[in-house]
Design a protein around this nucleic acid. Structure first.
Lengths: 323, 323
DNA sequence: CTTGATACG
DNA sequence: CGTAGCAAG
């Protein structure tokens, strides 16, 4: 049955004294924020209240991975109420992957200290070529078996865009895929060099263990993954080239887009440009993913989005994995 | 008699709904903000409430000139309550000279429109060499006889640091003198090229009419003009070279420092660096002046400072001239 | 529209 | 510390 929709409806977000985030909407009401003038038949809008599976029974062990493009970690931490700490308290994640930390090497040590109790393992990349640009981190409760920065063998590692940790039963890769840029200046680099290199690297790792790739993959895969497909055919992140590359290098190589697999026909954005108040009207993109090797897709309990968490132009996403 | 002093006393400034500025202090209390640990004997701190002469009698005609380094006019105008408009309402000036407007040529027309009713004559300089840098303006009720931008004949005019207007009985020059910069990089240019050129230009004009120079002259002339003379002997604005240049090029050439002449032994700062809350503790400098040709010093009724006007790291100064 | 680096004060 | 411009998204 179709949801009742009201275009441009705003969600009021209330931040409590201790930083907790409360949606002011009735918990039972369906998620009705929808900016499409003519929503496609059969599409519904992802509602993290109603579209998440019930918690696993107590005797099923699970791990919760989260990913968030924070668009500048120092700025985010200044907004107390939205700090990673609050997210930890709410979500109780095991691993948090950050992109666009925009840290310099010299900031890392200080940030590490001030971060979360109980997450003593953290691994940071910074852009060597441009200060305050790009940068990723993996923050984990348990100590990984190994850590790798960058693609290792290639010449794509000057911008601190990738960090890999190895756990018992899988590799976890956290990537901030290069934006193709204004005028699509970097489109060619992105689709002919970066994407294939990342893909090969993943296939190489997969020989020993299943692989999970998360992060800002800077591509809205299909029309359902962007608010205005027609108007963005030549926009970075929705070109045919990038979408094709996403399929060729990742999906066709046996990596599963977990959110889409669990939620066919569901609109779930993870990014809204700061310009023109795009977030209020849900004019967004789905750019952030958890892709997993087919061999462990069966372990995916929940692939979800937290669109109400602000503080960045992206929102966090999560993956609950049975182990 | 010595004033009672309390170091680091703070003045609370209240801004009313219509933008008026109210000091919260008792009107009868002397001005006691004083940051010197050991105030020099005989120095008192300028108090604009008690140290200004009584208004001129109704039959003496006068003109009020004001000067303010606004440190970015667009930023200032955003702070509604402290706009030049409020200053106009309080002070009823005839001419307002601004420095460090930091406007680009393309901003000027728009700003001109949005400015003050009754001040239809305004003349703007912008830095051609560096966008958003330097820049001056003279805003006047009456139309001047002529306007000149820069030093005219020299090669010092790329930065929009000088504008001259000619009135019936005097020339008014508004200058933003080059800061000698970190490491005193520009000290030599400043004292061997800019100051002498400005001085010659003034002497040239003086052949036909008395001259008034106002603006940010970027020099604290004597020890009394700076909160920590000993610690700033090699700071831009208080080097021996700049102080000597100030004397040689301006005072010795017959231009009178009107504030100092009227208030010997009085500490009156016009600038407080933003760093370390220098303004709260009155750790300031007197960098802004009205200098006048000796021939019209007799016409000076009041040379004053408005230290309670915020919105910039400098405060406005004023000159009331009998005409 | 927002972050962050850099210049300048 | 704060105002600018700029690059990047």
């Amino acid at each position: 049955s179709r949801l009742k929709r009201k275009a441009h409806q705003e969600i009021a977000v209330e931040v409590g004294a201790s930083g907790e985030v409360n949606l002011s909407r009735d918990q039972n009401e369906p998620w009705t924020v929808f900016a499409h003038k003519k929503p496609q038949k059969g599409w519904t809008v992802y509602n993290p209240r109603t579209m998440r599976p019930p918690p696993l029974s107590g005797d099923t062990k699970s791990v919760k991975l989260m990913s968030w493009n924070v668009n500048g970690l120092r700025a985010l931490l200044k907004l107390e109420g939205f700090s990673a700490l609050q997210l930890a308290q709410r979500e109780d994640f095991d691993v948090l992957c950050l992109q666009e930390t925009k840290l310099q090497e010299k900031d890392v040590e200080g940030i590490k200290q001030s971060l979360l109790e109980g997450y003593e393992n953290s691994f940071w990349t910074c852009s060597a070529s441009k200060l305050g640009y790009s940068g990723t981190a993996i923050i984990s409760r348990v100590e990984p078996l190994s850590v790798t920065y960058g693609l290792g063998v290639s010449d794509h590692d000057g911008e601190g865009r990738l960090v890999t940790v190895e756990f018992d039963t899988y590799y976890l890769l956290n990537a901030y895929v290069p934006n193709s840029g204004d005028g699509l200046k970097r489109l060619s680099y992105r689709v002919t060099e970066w994407d294939p290199s990342l893909s090969s690297y993943m296939k190489e790792l997969e020989k020993s263990k299943p692989v999970i790739l998360t992060g800002d993959l800077n591509c809205a895969h299909e029309e359902i993954d962007i608010y205005n497909p027609a108007g963005n055919r030549r926009s970075a992140g929705f070109t045919d080239e990038e979408r094709q590359s996403f399929e060729t290098n990742f999906l066709s190589k046996g990596f599963v887009d977990t959110f889409r697999e669990q939620h066919p026909g569901v609109v779930g954005y993870t990014y809204w440009g700061y310009r023109h108040g795009a977030r209020k009207t849900n004019r967004g993109w789905r750019l952030d993913y958890f892709l997993v090797s087919k061999s462990i897709f069966g372990k995916v309990h929940d692939s979800y989005i937290l669109p109400d968490v602000t503080g960045s132009d992206h929102c966090p996403i999560g993956l609950v994995l049975k182990i």
